[in-house]
Amino acid sequence: MLELKNLHVYIGKTHVLEDLSLEVKLGEIVALIGANGAGKTTTLMTISGLIRTRSGTISFQPDMESSRKEISRRKVEDIVSMGISHCPEGRQVFTTLSVKENLYIGAFQRRNKKDIKDDSESVFNLFPRLAERMNQRAGNLSGGEQMMLSIGRALMSRPRLLLLDEPSLGLAPMLVERLFERLDRINKEGTTILLVEQNASMALELANRAYVIETGRIVLSGTGHELSDNKEVQKAYLGLT
């Protein structure tokens, strides 16, 4: 579905991603784990077009019927319309807009009002807390609620591929668990997910496959279970010795 090949990305003069390659297959949940500053967020921003590559290719195929397209030179809004939705780090909901408006703006490129309404209903289904606060300013929500809203907003464009950046950041452990259940449900309902996480144990448990990124390079990859059993990964990311 999504394939990154030999990506080189610079921010200013810093070489942030060095020869990075990874693949996400249709229907999977893929986790990208690594330390702070390893290049996880940059990877997602490069996919969604916020950051440009120096070299390398990003190809995307929304589903089996469509053709594979090179997207690394496309505009952000075109990438969204092709079916990639990026839920950015730190929630970043529009605090001055209401909850409902935040969802509607997630569906900005869609025109069919009835579909949009139906989809917002299913987001409310997924996160009932949001329905209660529909008309409040998003800025008044708690951190956990904002995260739900951020994910809900990303789903409103009906993405084939959802890019999630640190959804567990700053949430209480119990909330994280509930959130990951929802992610599983979203995936089961047909959305492929590329998940960036520092909370490696939860991410590896949920993911079909995972990559470990260190200073801009992929150093390890495998199924979620393979990696959680890997000694190095346990030591570096799972806090086990």
């Binding site: 950015p88 970043q92 529009f94 807009l97 509607y104 703006i105 900005f108």
Partner: peptide
């Protein structure tokens, strides 16, 4: 609505396809 969103956060507004 798009204008308000863009004013609040330009990059996230782009991610919404604006």
């Amino acid at each position: 609505m798009a204008m308000r969103a863009t004013a609040e956060n330009l990059n996230v507004a782009r991610l919404m396809g604006i």
